[in-house]
């Protein structure tokens, strides 16, 4: 089973990103679940969401405790949340950042999702959209196929800039 934990702030689309991962994995022909962890949080508060992908039906409902991939949509969370908690020994980390991120001497993949969203004018209520472009970067890591990622995005969002932003993130992620 492949498990993903997404760290974001309320309103940044962490929950939607988890749903997109599950939908894309489903389009790849796999079983997948996406679960938000809803706390009493409000917009701006740190939140987590989970996605699981497997060849077989998934019977686990509890939170992901040892993720294969940690996604951080907001790098200001790094000093305040233990984003690496429980990460599998060969697990991967993907951070939304325009420049190199040092995390406990870990190899960190980065992609400037905020920059891409602003560039593509993919902004809702003054906030750059991160949940659709991040799926492109996740596809680059091999978690889901790019084809299914773009299909999943197009299924949920009509604005074609979501797909083009994801394709850019796919190309621009620094591995």
């Amino acid at each position: 089973m492949y498990e993903v934990r997404i760290h974001s702030r309320g309103g940044q689309g962490g929950v939607t990103a988890a749903r997109l991962i599950a939908l894309a994995a489903f389009r790849d022909g796999k079983h997948a679940t996406a679960t938000p962890f809803y706390g009493a949080e409000r917009r701006g508060a740190p939140i987590v969401a989970f996605a699981r992908i497997d060849e077989n039906p998934i019977r686990i409902y509890s939170q992901v405790r040892s993720p294969d991939l940690v996604v951080v949509l907001d790098r200001t969370l790094v000093p305040i949340v233990d984003v690496l908690k429980g990460l599998k020994p060969r697990g991967a980390v993907l951070v939304n950042s325009g420049h190199a991120v040092s995390l406990d001497h870990m190899k960190v993949h980065r992609v400037d999702l905020t920059g891409i969203a602003l560039d593509e004018n993919l902004v809702i209520a003054g906030e750059p959209v991160l949940d659709t472009p991040v799926l492109g970067a996740i596809a680059r890591l091999g978690v889901v196929s790019l084809e299914s990622a773009t299909k999943a995005i197009a299924e949920l969002f009509q604005d074609p800039r979501n797909v083009s932003a994801a394709e850019r993130a796919y190309r621009e992620v620094v591995l």
């Binding site: 749903r19 599950a22 939908l23 489903f26 079983h31 997948a32 679940t33 996406a34 679960t35 938000p36 809803y38 998934i58 409902y61």
Partner: peptide, 12 residues
């Protein structure tokens, strides 16, 4: 059905 654990979890 269980709140959030099932109600808000995406499954096939």
């Amino acid at each position: 059905l269980d709140g959030f654990l099932l109600s808000h979890t995406m499954q096939d």
